[in-house]
Amino acid sequence: MLALLGRKLVEAILVGLIISFVTFLLVTWTGDLAIALGGLGASREELQQLRTTHGLDRPILVQYLDWAAKALSGDLGRSFFSKEDVLPLILSRLPVTATLAVCSIGVGIALALPLGILAAIRQGRWIDHTAQSVAAVSQAMPSFWSGLLLILLFGVNLQVLPISGYENWASFVMPSLALGWFVFPILLRLLRAGMVETLNTDYIRTARAKGLSPRRIILKHALRNAVLPVISLAAVQFGQLLGGSVVIEAVFALPGVGQLAWNSIQRADFPVVQAIVLLVAVIFVTMNLLADLINGALDPRIRRA
């Protein structure tokens, strides 16, 4: 377990390094920072001055190491636009997006868990076909579109939920449903496949031969095994929701990280974009480590390896 965790940790650090370098390169190559700092009206001399003062004329690797050293101490630069420190700016937006991601995963799991189990134990029956068809359709619906349909239904026709902005918990209902609806089929398919596979194993036959009740066989013997890969996948999905909530935050005007990212992209505010990409990647990698830990706790083969 420790060896495995160590290996994963090393991998996570390497991934973080690569991503930080790639984003750094992208930012340096895609825009002239000097122009961004000085504005389009700046003269050639002024730009040269800016390059020297900000160290933009040094070799790229030196610039990166300089940037990385600052980043490690929490200094991710300043926004071109608002001149604020980037890190506090992002952290102030993070709770909204994190809440959204947690709720969406919650919705996804709440739908996938019972349906996945039912579909697997009633394999080939109508409930299985229904669950799979619903999953296939919902997986084909873009989340922004289901978001708009929800607005039409709950916000406009029924007028029970706020359609945009961030006021209270109710603001999260529709965005979470829209995202959770998109996440659920992925979880359902994996859980169903895992349950079907597990229910055909020798140890389930042993459990049946022991005369255990179907409930015990399914919940204790089968689910404990089938849920392991689902946990990993849920962690991956959570990480992807953090970076993928841009569109849904735009639809519902939620002031989260996604909205900040989108606005910053439109304003070419690259330090902010770069920091968000890096932060999302770090959270993603951390979530994966967490999933490995949980899997280790549930699976003795990993725990004692």
């Binding site: 022991k210 005369g211 404990r224």
Partner: peptide
């Protein structure tokens, strides 16, 4: 009757026991 009057053992000892449950748990649950 299953696991009561009649008990079964199978061919593959590698796969006939549940990998995520302890030996004690699997022995006593029946």
């Amino acid at each position: 009757v299953r696991g009561g009057t009649a008990a079964m053992i199978f061919q593959e000892p590698m796969t006939a026991l549940n990998p995520v449950l302890s030996i004690g748990d699997q022995m006593t649950e029946g």
